[in-house]
């Protein structure tokens, strides 16, 4: 039998199951990261995990990496290996992220249309 405390395993298991929910909301930090990625994906060049982590100067590398992985686990981004250097992982938008961007854009347009003309 395993010796680790039961409640530790239970907490880790519950955390993993909870993350499976399609209704799990993004944290504010994850949303901010996603928004910055959506802007950067407009640039005509590949975006690497290392580059994104280096730009997240307000948090530790571990935290930056965890947030990127969280977006991947929630199906918002996908990772692929660089063609020439397999160690480098590139971040691509998943269909869900593009859908999120469209929804935000549509909501903003609707809001603008509802405002009275000045």
């Amino acid at each position: 039998m395993t010796e680790e405390p039961l409640h530790i395993r239970l907490l880790n298991l519950m955390s993993a199951i909870r993350a499976m929910s399609p209704f799990g909301a993004l944290t504010a930090d994850e949303e901010q990261l996603l928004r910055s990625l959506l802007v950067r994906w407009h640039e005509p060049r590949d975006l690497s995990v290392g580059e994104v982590m280096r730009d997240m100067t307000e948090v530790s590398e571990a935290t930056a990496y965890r947030r990127i992985m969280s977006l991947r686990d929630k199906g918002l981004i996908t990772l692929r290996a660089h063609q020439s250097d397999k160690r480098v992982k590139l971040i691509d938008p998943a269909p869900l992220a593009l859908e999120y961007s469209e929804h935000v854009g549509a909501a903003l347009e609707e809001l603008m249309e509802q405002r009275p003309n000045r």
């Binding site: 199951i17 499976m20 209704f23 944290t27």
Partner: peptide, 18 residues
């Protein structure tokens, strides 16, 4: 079953931003 449990957990323990 995992969808049901995960949704229940997500509703009972929503994410908190730091």
């Amino acid at each position: 079953l995992l969808l049901i449990i995960s949704t229940a957990l997500a509703l009972a323990f929503p994410s908190r931003s730091r």
